[in-house]
Design a protein around this nucleic acid. Structure first.
Lengths: 224, 224
DNA sequence: GAAGTTTTGTTGTTTTTGCAACAAAAAGGG
DNA sequence: CCCTTTTTGTTGCAAAAACAACAAAACTTC
């Protein structure tokens, strides 16, 4: 089964023997679905009775506000979960939507099975609990990062704050981000055209360079 | 001991017999300290080897960016933790500071003891693990809420988004927020004087009313 | 490779925000 | 109760962002 190969690539199942993964899939009532780019995986405000694992590809957590503006809260990659917080915090609706950002494979699990101790005594389940904790914590920190960016005054500072973080994560001044310009504007909650202008200016000033989704931070601290 | 009375008020220790709390305090190498308003409890970027529990009072999680601007990430109340995410995600420095927002009592625990299973077989420790999970999840959701506010274009929408959330949490159109105007500006990452102008306008328009930290949302959806 | 779609860049206008400086009001401390 | 400090409101100006509308470029799809 092809899915098994994908699952084994994830840090979550690292070192799990095949038959254990199979048993867990059964135990968690796993369902696996493929999505095309742009497909809505979960609708905002729908009932939160499952948790979702990105097995392959990427998906965005999106929020639509009362005026119809859509903002990208987070970008999820293979191995990331959606809906875990709702499960553990006992919320019964998702507050955001999950939208496929490219061709993606997504597994979903029964929420109750995930959060309660396993009666079948699955070998990897205890380890899993700790991984969950780590994952939720990491997400919390990622959200804090995003707040850091959004808290910057002005588009220029927002985008630089974001790019610096991405650069740090990539470990290089050359890096690729998961967003095109429109999506980046949504992520940073600014007007797309205004962002375009600012990016153009930063490029002209020689602070950064970019092409498509690839960016390069040229000067570190030689501004003003 | 007075502290014990405070601890027992927290949801975390609800139903725990006194001697168990005492044992856990010992097991987690607990230390308890009092702080005056404005005192820094934890410095940004300092070593993350303990986790902190607000026992009484309030404290703000604050972040100082590269330009020296300070923004309030979150407001923590009695029962809330600081540093849990770093512990579980295995980060060795705090990325934000913790500052007392009023006279407060804070307990701190050894990070390792909190995240590893207890060898002493403390009676409440298993329950505690689940509470931790719930707490981190709740924080994650709170951060998402904040992102929702920050993603609004314009101060007016930001502040209304925030106030509506606070109103929903309080379950009434009359409610009190934990911030004064300066702090609210920091939380929403906008200029204080601009916020003041916008609030004044909203009051004049009859959309909201406020006095000190008490607010009232008058009209639901009759704007423009 | 032509036609349509999506993404990106550009520009001008309007509105909002940031900034700075000040004054009034409220809170806190002896 | 007076003095000091903190909080809040106000205003004018400069800067920045939102908005709208359009054009060019890139990417699809047949």
């Amino acid at each position: 089964m092809e899915i098994l190969r994908e699952l084994k690539k994830l840090a979550l199942f690292k070192g799990c023997p095949d038959q254990d993964i199979a048993r867990m899939k059964n135990c968690f009532k796993a369902e696996i679905t493929s999505y095309e780019k742009g497909e809505v995986i979960i609708n905002q405000s729908s009932d939160a009775n499952r948790v979702y694992l990105i097995v392959k590809g990427e998906a965005n957590v999106e929020h639509e506000d009362m005026f119809g503006n859509i903002s990208i809260i987070l970008n999820l990659k293979a191995g990331d979960f959606f809906g875990l917080e709702e499960a553990y915090a006992d919320k019964n609706t998702y507050k955001d939507a999950l939208v496929s950002a490219e061709k993606a494979i997504v597994a979903s699990f029964d929420r109750q099975k995930i959060i309660s101790p396993c009666s079948n005594n699955c070998p990897c389940h205890i380890m899993l609990a700790k991984d969950m904790m780590k994952m939720i914590s990491a997400r919390s920190l990622a959200l804090t990062d995003k707040i850091k960016h959004l808290s910057q005054r002005g588009i220029k500072d927002k985008v630089l704050s974001y790019l610096e973080t991405q650069s740090r994560i990539a470990g290089s001044s050359y890096f690729e981000i998961p967003f095109n310009k429109t999506e980046l504007a949504n992520y940073l909650a600014v007007e797309r055209s205004a962002l375009s202008t600012v990016l153009g200016k930063l490029k002209k000033e020689g602070v950064i360079d970019f092409d498509k989704k690839r960016y390069h931070i040229k000067a570190k601290n030689q501004e003003e």
